[in-house]
């Protein structure tokens, strides 16, 4: 395995009742880079990251994280290895405060060092710009702020690999710009796998792009290469680029 790659999948396949959602996906993720996973609706992007994070059981195939085969680990063990995941549909602890949400995320490794934990939570809240809302109940936040909290919970874990499933979905234009700035500031700090519909966001943040279509890898390359790729163009034609 190439030391440059933090994550690799080999022949990863998911079949739902006879329907192939993902077929033999061989995928490599470069360490320290932002990689975007794009593709039309129903291309199998969420299924793919579901199998990587362990939320969805793979029908067959293997997942390697930092050279280790993690195919048989349950989701929580994969997270413990340094993989963080934000949900496509916002999933925060709605009954708890913003602070408690982030505290739970950071607390897996820092719970026995209260002063470090407190500093960590505060710095993450500061970084994403919601420290003034620390005491609010998460369920009372606006949708945009809940998405930001979701990202804060990912960051608080200091992940080696940060998977973001459609993070800008439902955000206002200005919030999207803030999000792009945040992702850019993370570049180099951690590896990011970004599932994204918004091509503007993808072009502004991604170092590499992988295109999925019909559950298979259609193309891989730099944003420029993908932009020129005829196969990608045709895959998006008629499905309306969603941008």
């Amino acid at each position: 395995m190439d030391a440059m790659n933090i994550l690799e999948t080999k022949g990863l396949t998911k079949i739902y009742g006879g329907l192939k959602a993902n077929t033999d996906i061989d995928f490599k993720l470069a360490r320290g880079k932002v990689t975007a996973l794009i593709g039309p609706n129903g291309a199998g992007k969420s299924t793919f990251v579901g199998m990587v994070s362990g939320r969805t059981a793979a029908t067959r195939g293997r997942v390697f994280f930092e050279g280790e085969d993690i195919s048989h680990l349950p989701a929580h063990s994969r997270i413990q290895l340094g993989l963080a995941y934000t949900f496509q549909i916002t999933s925060v602890f709605r009954g708890l405060s913003v602070y408690e949400n982030v505290e739970l995320a950071a607390g897996r490794t820092l719970a026995d060092r209260p002063s470090l934990l407190k500093a960590k939570v505060n710095s993450v809240l500061e970084r994403v710009g919601i420290s003034d809302r620390a005491d609010q109940i998460a369920g009372d936040l606006s949708y945009g702020h809940q998405r930001i909290l979701e990202i804060a919970m990912g960051l608080a874990q200091d992940p080696k690999l940060f998977i973001l499933d459609e993070p800008t979905q439902g955000l206002a234009e200005t919030e999207v710009d803030e999000f792009v700035a945040l992702i850019r500031s993370l570049a180099g700090e951690t590896t990011i796998l970004l599932i994204e519909h918004n091509m503007k966001v993808v072009m502004a943040t991604a170092d590499f792009i992988t295109v999925l279509d019909h559950g298979m890898v259609l193309a891989e390359g730099s944003p420029e290469e993908i932009h020129k790729n005829a196969a990608v163009q045709s895959a998006y034609l008629g499905t309306n680029v969603d941008a």
């Binding site: 929580h76 063990s77 949900f87 897996r108």
Partner: peptide, 10 residues
């Protein structure tokens, strides 16, 4: 509050 979330926090 949210078992799935707790699991996906490790």
């Amino acid at each position: 509050e949210n078992e799935e979330r707790a699991r996906m926090l490790g």
